[in-house]
Design a protein around this nucleic acid. Structure first.
Length: 426
RNA sequence: GGAGAGAUGCCAGAGUGGUUGAAUGGGCCGGUCUCGAAAACCGGUGUAGGGCAUUGCUCUACCGAGGGUUCGAAUCCCUCUCUCUCCGCCA
């Protein structure tokens, strides 16, 4: 959510942002919002004047009654005034509700460094590192490799749950566990506080973090009105909703492991083959709360951490600088990291890192000041960032495919071996 | 799941229809005292939005959330949410 003041005072910047993000529908909302804002402010000043009069009169009535004098005349006046106030209050409420829903259509402004582009084809590859492995045999895609070795069972996953719910078995499961510990230890060593989050959130959290209303179709809703988390970000950032943080706590860094649940309706083809895109997957997520001055540096820091992990894993990767047309509604600046998967001979997205500036925190009402809630000075809205380190399935796909041997065994990256307890799978 | 109690400012806690943005205590900030500190004493200490003006005054809203009663609601009524205690059940 943007600041209404910004929308009002820097309308053309907001309009340009909408156009750059290729969201023409949002411009209609913007236009309507400006009209309603005007109307709302007029209504407001009228209402407040009448409220002030009502307050003054009711004070007078109190005084008269205490003195034992008649207040009938003022009371008669008041009943019409009160009705008018009530009418205006209701109008103001419905106007502001309408405005709130329009506000949700306006995307975040992008950072000036973000390249202009109309679609995913315009994203820029700003970094490419690592050697793509070469083989003396034809490397298999993971869906053959892992199934042959019994590490992943897709069919039984369909049996127990449905398509897109693979079961990791034996050393497959052990690899998941090794990755989890490796990722979390690495992040803890970098100063990230580890969180084991709930896997369901309430609609308020889903709304405040920006998953609702626009991404409702992406989440699974369970019968008690909760949503299964599509990412632990909802908990890691949502935990500080309605709080004023102590400035000394910033930057506040969290990391969390969780299963992530996504409907992924409309996906098909090679994108969903194997574990490239599934309905439930594990992910370790990083989140930061920073001051406005620090957020863009924090994005670089987080990106460096995810890239460092890929380098330690020996996976060739590239970094995409997402263009205005592909960056997403809430983000001001975003990088995607993709690993090379030798069996599929394509790049797979394993991490997405974004600076959301104050866009999410405004809705969350997460602010900061010297001394925290009991402190002095005006509270400022924090900046929030999030990034994956990393999503498991595609990382696993790349590890298996890139490190496979002719007999189907997999020589694990050095860094994982102590976590796995062995150097080889299979 | 059953029964009861509660939700007020940074915290504790009063307030049960009128001058209450809210007593009192604690904390925090500033000051007096002191060589310095403690103690004591004095003063200050919310959020959001608007107006004037320019860094101060003023108006409005906010006492879990939403409705209602009333000329007037923190205070009365209804609904919801959450917390606590006891019982039951259970990893």
């Amino acid at each position: 959510m943007l600041d209404m003041k910004l929308i009002r005072e820097e309308t053309e910047r907001v309009r340009k942002g909408i156009r750059d993000k290729q969201m023409p529908e949002a411009e209609k909302s913007l236009n309507q919002l400006l009209i309603l804002d005007e109307e709302f402010r007029l209504l407001r000043s009228d209402l407040e004047e009448k409220q002030a009069l009502r307050n003054a009169n009711s004070k007078k009535i109190g005084e008269l009654k205490r003195k034992g004098e008649s207040a009938d005349e003022i009371m008669r006046e008041m009943s019409t005034l009160s009705e008018e106030v009530k009418r205006l209050e209701e109008k103001s409420r419905s106007l502001s509700q309408h405005m709130d829903s329009l506000m949700l259509d306006i995307p975040n402004l992008v950072h000036e460094s973000v390249p202009y582009g109309e679609s995913e084809h315009d994203n820029q590859v700003v970094k490419e590192l690592g050697e793509k492995p070469s083989f003396s045999f034809k490397p298999k895609p993971h869906w053959d490799l892992a199934v042959d070795k019994g590490w992943i069972d897709f069919e039984r996953g369909v049996k127990t749950t449905g398509a897109g719910f693979p079961i990791f078995i034996g050393e497959g499961s052990r690899l998941v566990r090794a990755l989890k510990n490796y990722f979390l230890n690495t992040l803890a060593d970098k100063g990230y506080i580890e969180i084991s989050p709930p896997l369901m959130v309430n609609p308020t959290s889903a709304m405040a973090t920006g998953q609702l209303p626009d991404k409702e179709g992406q989440m699974y809703e369970v019968t008690d009105g909760f949503f299964l988390v599509p990412t632990s970000e909802l908990v890691l950032t949502g935990m500080h909703r309605d709080e004023i943080l102590d400035a000394d706590m910033l930057p506040l860094k969290y990391c969390g492991f969780s299963a992530c649940f996504r409907r992924e309706s409309g996906s098909y083809g090679k994108d969903v083959r194997g574990i490239n895109r599934v309905h439930q997957f594990d992910k370790v997520e990083m989140v930061q709360f920073t001051t406005p001055e620090a957020s863009y540096d924090a994005l670089e820091e987080m990106t460096a951490i995810s890239e460092g992990i890929l380098e330690e894993l020996g996976l060739p990767y590239r970094r995409l600088f997402m263009c205005t047309g592909d960056i997403g509604f809430t983000q001001a600046k975003k990088y995607d990291l993709e690993v090379w998967s030798a069996g599929q001979e394509r790049w797979l997205e394993v991490s997405s890192l974004s600076n959301i500036t104050d866009f999410q925190a405004r809705r969350l009402k997460t602010r900061y000041r010297e001394g925290g809630a009991a402190g002095k000075g005006k509270p400022e809205i924090v900046h929030t960032l999030n990034g994956s380190a990393l999503a498991f399935p595609r990382t696993i796909a790349a590890i298996l495919e890139n490190n496979q041997n002719e007999d189907g065994s997999v020589t694990l990256p050095k860094v994982l071996q102590p976590y796995f307890g062995k150097s080889t799978m299979g």
